[in-house]
Design a protein around this nucleic acid. Structure first.
Lengths: 228, 228
DNA sequence: CCAAAAGTGTTACACCTACACCCATGA
DNA sequence: TCATGGGTGTAGGTGTAACACTTTTGG
């Protein structure tokens, strides 16, 4: 029931994935249109905001155990041209009244691309990965939201190595390519080695990656958090 | 009219001031009680969230031209013991229904202590500065909100010098004492000089501060932002 | 054996830290 | 003249940035 949800306030989820050296976001195509938007949802009356964000991302990806960060609230009165968006999204005049005002809490999620099963919701008929470099003109102000999410992610990346977009076991050069993609510029391999190893967050696994036509790299994983 | 406001969602404002080498927050005492809380408010239907935060702070301080930062959304289902808070705040059972669910967007403001005219709102009968070191047990989860605000402020301080808690003209040692108070530990005066001057954010004014029983310090102000 | 990627060490520079003395002022 | 706080330079350490060669592997 719609009345079980807090209205006016919603969650928008920027779900980041990493595939073929490209940063991706998961988008939804609205029924009967060629228009795409971020996944989102409302907050249940008896549901914490963080839990609602988990639910939104979980329903689109099938994943539990999410790496989620609240990064910004978007609350401008004129966040986008509502008339234009209603038309593009294929919504009738009645449905329009559902959004007298839209305030969104932005969360970004870092997920492992290959484990995601993209799933549309009841308003949409497709769920797919899009490369950040070739995004279409999205509904609402979702292009801007993605931009702010990316800036927040870059800021976080400068503070600590982040590997949640990779499989559990990965090589240092793979982690480096991830960081380069997020930051948008090349990094020096030797310095990247020293820095990530020195961070103490990684531990080397006994096996190396086999099957590449070149020197077999060591595999690492993020050290499990110390129990407190 | 209450119906002009978005309910369930509210603003909580952590208004920081600096006086006699102590960091202060502006608090409100609820009518007929000895209970204090942060200033807060709802968001009007035709009002941006940032503007609502400005309004909240402006109404309590009389200040325009605010330095305001959105720092976190507090949205847990059980943010605090509601029954306990209703009793302490002196609210009757009927009023209780006004808050079936409370989600707060936290903003902090940095204001010039001496320019503030503390003003209570319609639920409260006193508005006063409290030192961060001697806060009482506040209503709601406001002690935790202040703690998160302080952490965010410290993080911001490590990225750039902040002087909005001081008068426009100030000496470097005054700025240093402000930073020491916020960070909670002493700083080296020589290093602080070099760092703040090197940041390029300050410009030295022609006059020095007079009237102290000691060497007259140079006065500085934050360089006005370059027009883009 | 060859192409391609993995892996490594050294130097230079920037930034932060630690530290001590002289200067200016009002009382 | 003195007590107090303002104002400054230098040296060492740490971390980041720049840079080239050897090693390993599958094909």
């Amino acid at each position: 029931m719609m009345t079980d949800y807090i209205r006016a306030l919603s969650i928008d989820g920027v779900i980041f994935g990493f595939h073929e050296n490209e940063l991706k976001v998961l988008l939804l195509r609205w029924k009967g249109t060629d228009e795409w938007s971020l996944p989102g949802g409302f907050i249940r009356m008896q549901e914490s905001v963080d839990v609602a964000a988990q639910r939104v991302v979980q329903e689109r990806t099938g994943l539990t155990q999410l790496y989620l960060r609240q990064f910004h609230v978007f609350g401008d009165v004129n966040r986008y041209d509502q008339v234009d968006v209603w038309r593009r999204a294929g919504l009738s005049f009645d449905e329009r009244d559902m959004w007298p005002r839209a305030i969104s809490i932005g969360y970004y999620a870092l997920v492992e691309y290959s484990k995601v099963e993209p799933t549309p919701d009841h308003l949409t008929e497709a769920c797919a990965w899009w490369s950040l470099d070739t995004l279409p003109n999205l509904l609402f102000d979702h292009n801007q939201i993605i931009e702010v999410a990316l800036q927040s992610l870059r800021k976080e990346l400068n503070e600590q190595p982040i590997g949640h977009l990779l499989p559990e076991a990965f090589s240092i050069p793979e982690l480096q390519r991830l960081h380069e993609t997020i930051l948008g510029h090349a990094l020096d391999a030797r310095n990247f080695y020293k820095k990530t190893i020195a961070s103490g967050d990684l531990e080397r696994l006994p096996e190396r990656r086999r099957g590449t036509p070149h020197k077999a790299p060591f595999l690492y994983r993020f050290r499990p958090l110390e129990p407190v």
